[in-house]
Structures are given as structure tokens and as C-alpha cells.
Design a protein around this nucleic acid. Sequence first.
RNA 1: GUCUCCGUAGUUCAAUGGAUAGAACAGGGGACUUCUAAGCCUCUAAUAUAGGUUCGAUUCCUAUCGGAGACACCA
Length: 549
Amino acid sequence: MITVELKQLITKACEQAGFSDVEVKLEHPDDLVNGDYASNVALMLAKQVGQAPKDVAEKIKTNFASNSLIKKIEVAGPGFLNFFLNDRFFTDRLKIILAQGDSYGQNKDVEGYKVMVEYTDPNPFKAFHIGHLMSNSIGEAISRIAEASGAEVKRACYQGDVGMHVAKALYGLKAGQNLMTAYAFGSKAYDENETAKAQIIEFNKKIYNRNDEEINKLYDGGRAESLEQFETIYQKLGTKFDFNFFESEVAGFGKELVEQNIDTVFTNSDGAVVYAGEKDGLHTRVFINSEGLPTYEAKELGLAKIKHDTYPYDYSIVVTANEITEYFKVLLAALKQIYPELAGKTRHVPHGMLRLPTGKMSSRTGEVITAESLIEEVKQKIATKVKEAKKESNLDDATLEQVAIGAIKYSILKQDITKDIIFDLEKSISFEGNSGPYLQYTYARTQSVLAKATTEGLMIDAAKVEVPGLVEKLLTRYPEIVYKAGENLAPHHLTTYLTELASAFNAYYASHKIVGGEAGGYRLALSAAVGQTLKNGLKLLGLATPERM
RNA sequence: GUCUCCGUAGUUCAAUGGAUAGAACAGGGGACUUCUAAGCCUCUAAUAUAGGUUCGAUUCCUAUCGGAGACACCA
């Protein structure tokens, strides 16, 4: 990468100037008049060597070895070193982008590492709601970014197919409710009716023990139907899980693990088995309840080991909403004592909550927006909008869905994943400006232009090359952005960048005629490179790139 | 009450301790007999408060105020 090269040159110049042990940092100045890259090494060094920052900068500048990459170096502001790269660097990059194609931007940061990413985690018998959509969008993006960084990624989904929520749903099913309404019905009964509560607790045991034929039948049917619904949604969203783990499969082993470590790791307390987290600055959590059943904590403990047996990961990433952040710390503390090597490889990536303006969503009360209904509603909105804007709509249903899902995913991925999203259908999902469809539209536009150019080839002839502007400069930064997104597990760096790139290209497009004319070949090559980069970036985010829209 | 995360234009979001805090939406104004107007150009508008560290703070530290989450048998 260019940044590595540049850093080496700076380090060398610093040494030549008599400054050693410098950590060189590079950044892109906000304004291109301050160069393509800037470094604050002189500012950092100034105090250490007792000289004025500007003098230090000048010394580094004069000791810079001449090379073909750099056009000029300026000392500016309080003591920044601003680097201007040769035009040739940017125009040559277009060739590289077109040659590398779909692989442009990939790196080898974590090459050879086996990574398991767990995300989405919906519960059978409960609705797949927009919260799951958030986890899925983030987890899928992280998986794809990890792949682009060289990792071998396996996607995992962990699903709660046993536990009180299932017992409540079964109570509802038994009372004649359907899968959509059963859970809320059972929850209500549990809270309001003592007899129902006792019955549900009884159901819960029967589910674990599988000793009641009627319950088994209801359970098996409901579970299968739920999983089938989830598959349909994953297909729409573009996720294919390599492994499905179920609480029913890990519960037994998890319970054993806890029981084997009573008195060493865990303690008995009021009939339950708990981990006293206070010694780690955390809080106490129950691992086996007083009914003798493993809680989510014990199951998760078993899951960690079973995951590793299934796929010997170097890193295990668990993507969930941040409401379980504290709980996960307790889990990791316990895991650290039982399987220290696994705890060290496990990383919890919490994301914000998706909340409604009225507050937190609650599947207990049935106050949820399902993923399915959101996608349909957004499709409707887009269809209406397109109909108003254009006389005829050539948008087929498949494209409409790609754009709708693109709008939804973008709205989730555009911000720092740790922050909550207050979800308001009217405001949260945008089709213009800073949005998924804006990027998809820009991509389609590049393809449309290329299709128009039937007689011209993509030429980057030295004689016809234009002076590189913002578009060319942004294009060269893409690999840095992928790297940064991977390093910080922060997909929003990509969305921000892609929107900047699309915006620069749209401005270029509005003021330059691309097809035909003197520089036609070059401009087409530029359009192709923008299209390729948008496509690669959108792919990492999990957004489709329709050719027309 | 204890712990964790968060407070940036009217709204939704950006900004590895750096230069004039950047977009989008909303609102005002505008261009186009041109390759996709889901587009382009332009104007108005923000770092919760008070201290501290630093050459330099939206960013780090402390306190206050405000919001969200967790705090034993749900997940």
C-alpha cells in the first residue's frame, strides 16, 4: 500500500535528519490544497528534541530522498509535512483497479486466520424482527470485511430453541394461536395467570426432557416452521450460514461443564449455581437455575467449546446487541477459568439497540416490527416514489427488493455500530442523499455510461490523461478504507467513504461529458474504475448492485 | 443506588489528539434543448455545562446535567 511506502520514506528522512524512534502517522488533509497525505511527525518530535516544529519539519523535508512518487513536499500550518503525489500515481491506479477488478481493495491483514462470526441469532417460535435485521446486517458486513482481509470466515447462527420463551410459545400454540402470536399470548398468560404460569414452567421441563408426546409434536412442528421462515429471510438478505447451533444441542454439555467446576469456578447459592463475578469487578449471574436447568450462561459456555470442536477458530467473534455486554463479560470471566485459550480467542462485538420512538421493542407484548413487513413497506415506498418521479418504471420486483434492502442495510451500517438507532420508518430509511439507493444509483449510472460507449474503448493513453481530481484521489484510498474498516470492525468507514466517492463522481458526471470527445477513453476508464470500486465496497457491506434502476 | 455506553446544525449521522468541525434530510436560492433528475450547484445552521492535561481537545481525565443498558434464577 502507498501509505506503507510513504511511511518508510518519512522514517528514513527523519533518521537522515538525526531524529530516531519516530512513529509516523499519516492522514488525508480535509482539503486537497494541503496535499494528498500529511504527517504530523514534526509536531510530535518538536518537544522531544527541543526545537520549533517548523524547523524540524524543514529538516525532515531537506533530507527526503528524491523519488518518482512525490511531486512536492510543503511545510504548512503549525508544522505539518504535506505530501503531493505525482499525477501519474493516480492515473496509473486506474489501470490497477481495472486489472484487479473484483479483488481491488483486498488485503492480507489476517491472512490464513480462521474466524468464526456469530450473528443474527433469532429465536425459533419468536418473530424475526428489525433488531435481528440489525445484527444480521452488521455481522454479515463484518464477515465480508474479514474475508477481504484474508481470513477464512465461517458464519454461525446460534438459536434459542429451548427455554422459557419456547414454553410460553407452546402454551400459546396449544391454545390455538399461530406462530406469529403464540409467544405474546403465552407471555401474557404467564404474567397474569398463576395456573398458566405453573403450566408453562412444566412445559419448559417437558421440552428439555422430551417426555410428552403432545408437547414434542407441537414443538417439532413449530421449530421446523420457524427455521424455514428464517431461511427465506436469509436468502433475501444475502446471508448463508455455515453452521447453525441450537441451545438444545449445547445445553447438556454446558450444564456438565458448570457441574464439573462447582466449588472451583462456580458456587451454590439459594438452590442455583452461580458465578460470583464480584471478584472480577462484575456481578453474579446464574448458570444453573434452581429448577436444575441451564440458563443462557451455561449454554453459551458449552457453545464456546462446541464451536471450537466444529471449526478450530483462531478468532471467535460474537455480534450481539449491547444489552448483553455486561453479561458477556461474566461469561468470559467464567470461560477464562475453564478454557483460557478459548476465552482469549473470543471477542464480543456489541452493537447498539434498535429502538422504536415509543421505546424498546418487545416481542413479549407483540410490539415488534418484523423484518418481512419492513422490507415490504420499504418496497412500497420506493415503488410509489419511482412512479412519481419517472413516467414509466422499468423496475422489476427483484430490483425493487434489492434497492429496498439496500436502503435498510445502509441505514443500519452508515453509523458507528455501537450507537443505538431510534427507528422511525419515515425518517430512518432514506432513498436519496446519504443512502443505499444513492450508491446503487451511482453504480447503475456508471454501467449505463459504459454501455453507451459502443465504439470507444477504455483508454488511459498518456497523451489524453486528465489532471487527476477528487474522483481519482478518492479511488486510490479505497484499500486503506477496507483496511481501516477491518482493523476496527467498523463497517461505517466504508459507507462514509463510498458516499464520498459517489458524490465526487456525480459532481464530475454533471460537469463532464463522458462518452465521446477528446478524453472519452480516459473518462470511460474513470467511470469503470468508480463502478468497480462502488461494486466492491457495496459487496462488502452486503448491498446488491443492480445494473439498472 | 452501583457499573457500562452515549450527548455534535431544527432532524439523522461523520470527523486514527491536528489545519476553516464534514455530509444528508428539512428550509431558502439556482442551473440544464447534454451520456439515468433516486442526480448537480449554492445559502442558512452544531461540539450539553464547568474545570483540567496538551504546542493543539468533538476526541483524553474529573465533576455536573441529560439519555440508554445491565445489576440472580429471561435471552
